[in-house]
Each structure stands twice: as structure tokens, then as C-alpha cells.
Design a protein around this nucleic acid. Sequence first.
DNA 1: ACTTAGCACTCAATGTATTTGAGTGCTAAC
DNA 2: GTTAGCACTCAAATACATTGAGTGCTAAGT
Lengths: 349, 349
Amino acid sequence: MPFYFCMDDRKKRILQAVTDDYIDTAEPVGSRTIAKRYNLGVSPATIRSEMADLEESGYLEQPHVSAGRIPSHKGYRFYVDFIMQTKNISERDRLRIRRRLEEKKRELDLITEETAKILAQLSNYAAFVLSPVSKAAIIKRLELVQLDSGLILVILVVNPGFVRTHLVMTERRLEPEQLAYINVYLNSRLQDVPLSKIGMSLLREIATEFKEYNNLIETTLETITRLFEDRKEQTIFTDGQINILKHPEFKEAESAKRVFDLIAESDAVSNLLIDTMSTGALRVVIGKESSHPDMDVCSVVGAPYEVGGVPVGAIGVLGPTRMHYAEVVAIVELVAGHLGEILTKMLIM
Amino acid sequence: MPFYFCMDDRKKRILQAVTDDYIDTAEPVGSRTIAKRYNLGVSPATIRSEMADLEESGYLEQPHVSAGRIPSHKGYRFYVDFIMQTKNISERDRLRIRRRLEEKKRELDLITEETAKILAQLSNYAAFVLSPVSKAAIIKRLELVQLDSGLILVILVVNPGFVRTHLVMTERRLEPEQLAYINVYLNSRLQDVPLSKIGMSLLREIATEFKEYNNLIETTLETITRLFEDRKEQTIFTDGQINILKHPEFKEAESAKRVFDLIAESDAVSNLLIDTMSTGALRVVIGKESSHPDMDVCSVVGAPYEVGGVPVGAIGVLGPTRMHYAEVVAIVELVAGHLGEILTKMLIM
DNA sequence: ACTTAGCACTCAATGTATTTGAGTGCTAAC
DNA sequence: GTTAGCACTCAAATACATTGAGTGCTAAGT
């Protein structure tokens, strides 16, 4: 960039016009179009010379010499950081979102699924929700129920909000009193213990206590640990991937498939959201800014959601670089806020 | 069709050659190609005249006059019914399938999910699994667990193989004895009762018994009924939809999207599989044979799976009309067989 | 010093004509 | 009944011309 370059107000407005128009139409934008559609009060020629400056400084690009301009990554970045104003979302939409989430309250997986669905529907892009990791979560109850001789159901209730069941096969039938005893003991040791405090040492200690029921206990405890490992790697929910096909940059099935494969195979999005979570603030990752090279045609808008003021997860929207940032940012922010509030309510209850 | 038309052996072999080749290459097949690749011992000219006959009788089509032939729907139908021989699947693959299903044993939803995944991977098309409806299923256990004051977890174990949990909010805390009493009573009334026998009358009878705990019991029973309604409408699991994009007939994202929307919005596939289930036999639905008009570019191979000799569900594969029928039929048949066996084992246990 | 009208220039996209070649149907000879 | 030969067809590929949106530059206007 030449040292005398200065992003004055008119340049900003032209960059905004180009970006807005390109986001809407997916066609390179020319000087005449801008002069006509956005009344900046100057002639196309002036706009041309300004655009030449913007191009020289790397904010705009020209697909070829006789085409209009499109924003570069740097242009989008500037647009997102300094120009756009996030769209206002109607009170009606806010309420609708809130209500849909409230309905699913009390079941963590349902809430995350619903959140992904809402995000996808509102944004028209692919949506992702990184499930909450809560170190504050405690084991609420551990219950073994005999179903059949040789078949025991392990029920693990964790607060906030999730229940996991797992079937365990045992060698022999247990008497009800034995089972009741085990239940009482396990709960006395594990109830209200935060997940973060449960380590191998505690589990092994319990295991030795019950040498006689070796098999059952081993498997039960193994189930618990496996469950935590599942939860350690935060699960990612997704919805609306098919929205990808709506956008002209992916009208060749080939290019769409590359995005789908990327989403499916790699942890690119997942990692990005984990990162967003620890950053603790809404983030827009534009094209090749992402660590994953194949994602350079895509952008992601991600935001953490908080429970009691602490970020515990993140949500995100993935679309083409030519994305409706102003709108998507507003949506993501709003949904993240609602999700956090609902989860917070769940936790303190 | 002219009355003197006779599908002699040579015609069959030519129809087979055209179909096989077209399925592999997705390109119209000419007489020269057939003469070269499949040694029928006759010249292209002869093949040409035979193909002309086949076209006249409606088994082949010509996209335009100077192109090769492709099978018509009628051609595919004849190929599927009378020509192709289903591919043999290697012992190694059989074992792999079996092992993958065995691993998920004991959790119905996991099995159906895994089945869909296997089908999609093996076939390279979109896979569907209609979950089993089992009128023989019985309530194994109904358990209410107090989590918090005002918060009760309803655990419903149904055999074969599924566990459902649901949180219920109550107005006041229940004493452990009260809860234990309710548990015992509910189980005495409901345990080992087949789902098909549970109707409104039974539930209402129970509800009156517990007027004092009105709220809790009402909600619990409501949960049970809702659960059954969920199960009445058999759920459909799907996997590998993205495989659609692999095939050249859908290389325009537009056409792929139409298929995705069809799959997502309508119950076309679901209905087709329900139908297959009641028919009780493997079925190949080619293009416009389907009831749904938009599905004319797709074919579905569906097969029921049986528990103890009774069809309880169905699986299916959806792909373009130009589908590897010989292979897919073998896969679907095999997977349906394994799935049935595994589920049968689960049931009698 | 900035703005703008005017103009020459570029090049993707579009249109038109031509060529190519895979494939056919028909016919006559085998 | 089979096949070689040939005229014919037409989609696809190639080549070429045209169009037009858009640019950069320059010189005149404010």
C-alpha cells in the first residue's frame, strides 16, 4: 500500500457499495452501477479512480481487466471490522427464537440440535453448534437397574442437563439387595462430584472396594470414563449443510462436494469454534484466514455462548466468502445470547 | 411392441451389454463399443439391427439420432428382473458388516444408524433405514428418579432395545418413600406389558389411582403416550446423502438440490419403505415407477428385514436411475439379512 | 487540485459458421 | 441371417467475429 493512502470517507462508502452489491448479486460491480444505485453524488469516472486506489491498496480485486471489482479478503475484513453495521433483528424474530429454545429446555442435546436448526434457517448457510463443556457439571445420580439376568442398565444423570444410558452385560444375576447396596455406595462416592474431579484414581479406588462384583463395576466405571472422553471432545452439531447448494459459488456439484467433505472429514470447523470459545468473543474468519487451506472459499462467523458469564461453547455459521456478514453476525450474536441465557437458567435450577 | 418381437438370447445379451456399459460409463453406448468390448461374435451392423429392434420395443432409447443407446425404464426393469445376476459379496465384506453391527448390539438407535452408515458406504448412494416397529415390544421397566426438588427423571426401558428418558417438573418435592411406592405400583401395572396393549383406558385407570400426585403422574403418562406416538410413526434414519453429488447426473448443484429437497420434505422414501415392509420382499423401484413424480430420475432398492420371520422394518438405497443394480441389490439383501438376525437375537435375549 | 466527459482499449461472453466424428439406417453382396 | 460399405445425421468441438461492460488515461472544466 502506498504510504500516502488514506481511507477517507468516500473510499469507505465506495468499498461499502461494492461489497454490499457483490454480496447481493454475486456479480462483479462496476463504477456505473455504483453511481446509479448508490447516490454518492459523484460521476462514474471519480468512482473509477477511487476504485483504482482501493485496488492498489488491496481492498478490491478485478477478476479480469474488463470486469467490475469484487472485494478481496482484505476488503471483506475492512468491511466487517469498520464499515458494516449489524442488521437489526425484528422483535418478532427474537421472540420466535426464544420460544423455540424454551420449548426444548431441559434436554441438552435437544437444545443444541434446535439451535443448529434455527441458525441454519435464519442464516441460509450451514450452521454448527459446539456443545457446552462445563467443568462445573456434576454427577447428579448414578443408577444401576437390572433388566434381565445378565443385563444391567447404567443410567448416569449429569447436571446441567444430560442423561446417558448404557447397557452392561454381566456374568451372573445380582440380587436386588446387592444392587441396591452398590447403588447406594456409588452414589455416596460420586453424587455431586464435579466431572473435572473424577480421575482414574477415584475410579480405581471404587473398583477395589468391589472386587467381588469385579466385572460389573469395571464395566460401569469404564462406561463412565468413556462417557467423559466423549464429552471431553466436545460434540459438534450441524444443520443446513444443504444450504451450501443454494449459493452460486457452489453451483458445480464438484465444488460443493469439496466443502461437504471438508466439513465431514476434518475438524476445521470444530477447532475454529473451540478457538472462538477460548477467545470469548464473536469472530469472523474470512477465507484463507482459516488455518485450513481448503477453506479459502468459505467464511465462518462464530460466537461463544456463556453460562453464568463463562464461555462454555460456541456456535457458528459457514458460508461462501461472499456472505451476508451484517445479517449473519447479528443472528449469530443473538442466538448465542439466547442459548447462553437458557443454559444458565438450566444450570441454576 | 410388434407382435412378432421375441427377446431371444442374443437380444438379452445386447441389452445386458448396453446396460452394463452405460451403468459404468454414464455415456450412451454404440454398436461398435459393444462389438469391441463384449465379444458377442457378431459385427457392429448386426448389433445395430438388434438394437433397432430393442428400441422399437421400448427397451432402449436414443438421446438423439447420432448417439448410442441407453436403457429405458422398461429396459432397466427387464435387466433387473431377468438379466442381471446379483453380485457376490466377498466373505471378508460379509464378516466386516456383521462385526460392525454386532458392536452396536443392544442399542436400537445405534444399530439403525450404523446400518445406514454401512449401506451408504458400501453402495456409494444415499441410504435409508426404517426403524423397526415391534408390536411384540414390552415395557421392561419404568423408573422415576428424583433429581432435584421439583425435577424428576422418567426412565422408560423397552425391550427390545431402547431406553428413553424424559425430565418432568413437579410442583413439590416427593419423599423417597412416596416415589418408591409410585415406582413399585407403576411397574406392577406396566412391566412386561406389550406396547400394543397400552391404551388410553389403562393409563387413565392408573391416573385415577394417584389423584394425589396428579401432576407428576399425568405428565409421566403423557410422556409415555407421546413416546409411543413417536414410535408409531416409524422413524427413518439416513446416511450418505452427499454420495448423490458423486454421480454425473447430478453434477449441477441445482439438480442435486432437487433430490435433497425431495428427500427432506416429502415422505416419498419413507412411504416406499413402509410399503416394501408390508410387501415382505426385496423391491427395485425404477424412476417414474415411484408414486412421487419428482423421483423419476432416481431409483430405489428396498428390502424388508425380519425379526423372528416377521417383517418389522425396511432398508433402502436411493441413487440415480443409472444405478449399479446388481451390486446394490446384493448389498441391500445382505445387510437386511444381518440386521434382521441381530435384532432377532436381541429380542429373544 | 479535484472532478468529469470523452475516448481508446481490453477481454469475457455471446453469437455464428464450420468441422469433426461417433453413431445410425439402409442396401447390396456374401 | 450376417456383414461390409456408404450416405446421412447431429451433438460437440473448434474457430472466428461481434458485442458490451468496464477500465485507464487524458484533457478540459470547475
